[in-house]
Design a protein around this nucleic acid. Structure first.
Length: 405
DNA sequence: TCTGGGGTCCTAGGACCC
DNA sequence: TCTGGGGTCCTAGGACCC
């Protein structure tokens, strides 16, 4: 059946929220960044973008692009709160709302569109309500599936509203470079160009066999995408898919070489991962460690356990065993710990049972003190405080396992 | 004063088993 | 008088997304 999907995408979300809460920032080039020294631009306001300020730039680069740039340290609570309120608006139009990231949501309005005078009218109303309630602009893309809705938004931002109707899809795609599509990144686009494929039209006409032999199963999907086909459903939070991994990583305040320092960070990271797993009722059978050297060379190592765990100390122990044999070739810049091969722990270990949570937290704290002496805990706590000033990740969710504090 | 952090999915090679 | 062969599990790496 033909569907109608909306993508609501906040324009420069974090920066817009900051401009709204502080009128002095309005109309000015603003960059939202983390608080630490080694941080990057998370979101630039459109004023800042006009100077060339881009997501991912470090402070130095951003200031070079725009000397009068106003840097604001991100405040995750504000964005999370706004995101939660935005969802309430969406739910007035359909129960099928997928909060894709903190600033993007898919709405499947198939079936409810006629109640509100059609998809464009819904898009218009949502934009208006967001502007009125929060004073920020949103772009709404509408299409017969998520891929096309996303494209419609990308092609019309900022403050856009565009409906690509089913019969318009092939025309819109004909001359579009494949890299503009959601899911085709720079590397894939370069591969395609090397094959002489420069537009979605050309990609759609490339024989499946050729794409298949070159890219495997991905090749078939590429062709489907170039034809504007996408069957993936809008998944509301209540039926959200299984979580695959839980992880934490951090760029260290300074590069380190000593194994004992590395291990102390591994402990903090293990604890954050385990805490989040326990809180949301997951345990993992695979423990992974990622290391980034000063030179930015990055690699990961993992180990599979016989039983899943959500225990801080077990994860820590395994992570240590993984790291210990490594002969470091350079100082370490970033460390990460994650667990995967997840299972759901039993429902009885109730998700939001505050008492249990607190008890387990205490057990954790006790455990650390018992095993490593309170010195470890104090040190860990101090470092944790320091690292909390890090960058806000747009992938953070307002609720669920992937909400990280 | 270079270069964040949270994820998902896919591939490829080797171990191991029958 | 070389090299089966299919299936699964595990590990490492990479592309892509917000």
């Amino acid at each position: 059946m033909e569907r109608t999907i909306l993508l609501v995408d906040m324009d420069a979300f974090f920066a817009s929220v900051e401009q709204q809460s502080n009128p002095a920032l309005r109309g000015k080039p603003v960059a939202v960044m983390g608080g630490g020294k080694r941080t990057v631009v998370t979101t630039a306001s459109y004023e800042a973008r006009s100077f060339g300020v881009r997501t991912g730039m470090n402070l130095h680069e951003a200031r070079q692009a725009c000397p009068e740039l106003i840097v604001v340290v991100g405040n995750n609570d504000k964005y999370t709160h706004t995101c939660t309120e935005l969802k309430k608006i969406y739910l007035r139009y359909t129960p099928l709302v997928e909060i894709y990231s903190i600033d993007e949501a898919f709405l499947d309005v198939t079936g409810s569109e006629h109640l509100f005078g059609g998809p464009l009218e819904i898009g218009q109303r949502i934009k208006r309500e967001i502007r009125k309630r929060f004073g920020i602009n949103a772009t709404v893309g509408i299409g017969p599936n998520k891929l096309i809705a996303k494209l419609a938004a990308d092609l019309s931002k900022p403050d856009g509203l565009r409906w690509i109707r089913p019969h318009e899809v092939s025309e819109v795609l004909e001359d579009l470079p494949p890299g503009e599509l959601w899911g085709i990144g720079p590397r894939m686009a370069a591969h395609l160009r090397a094959m002489g494929i420069n537009t979605c039209g050309e990609l759609a006409r490339t024989p499946t066999g050729i794409l298949r032999s070159r890219f495997g199963i991905t090749g078939e999907r590429l062709k489907m995408m170039a034809m504007g086909r996408d069957e993936t459903p809008v998944i509301s939070d209540s039926e959200t898919g299984e979580v695959r991994s839980i992880g934490h990583s951090m760029t260290l305040p300074r590069d380190i070489y000593s194994m004992s320092e590395i291990e102390s960070y591994i402990l903090i990271l293990s604890d954050r991962v385990a805490f989040r797993a326990r809180r949301y009722g997951y345990a993992g059978r695979t423990v992974s460690v990622v290391i980034r050297y000063k030179s930015f060379e990055t690699f990961s190592l993992q180990r599979k356990l016989t039983v899943p765990t959500d225990d801080t100390h077990l994860i820590y122990r395994v992570a240590k065993e993984i790291v210990r044999p490594i002969r470091l070739r350079e100082p370490v810049r970033l460390l990460g710990v994650s667990i995967s091969s997840l299972i759901k722990t039993t429902a009885q270990q109730c998700l939001f049972d505050e008492q249990k949570k607190r008890r387990r937290l205490l057990e954790t704290v006790d455990g650390i003190n018992l095993r490593y002496g309170s010195y470890s805990l104090l040190w860990a706590a101090a470092l944790q405080a320091e690292s909390h000033k890090g960058v806000i990740s747009p992938a953070w969710r307002p609720e669920g396992v992937h909400k990280t504090l």
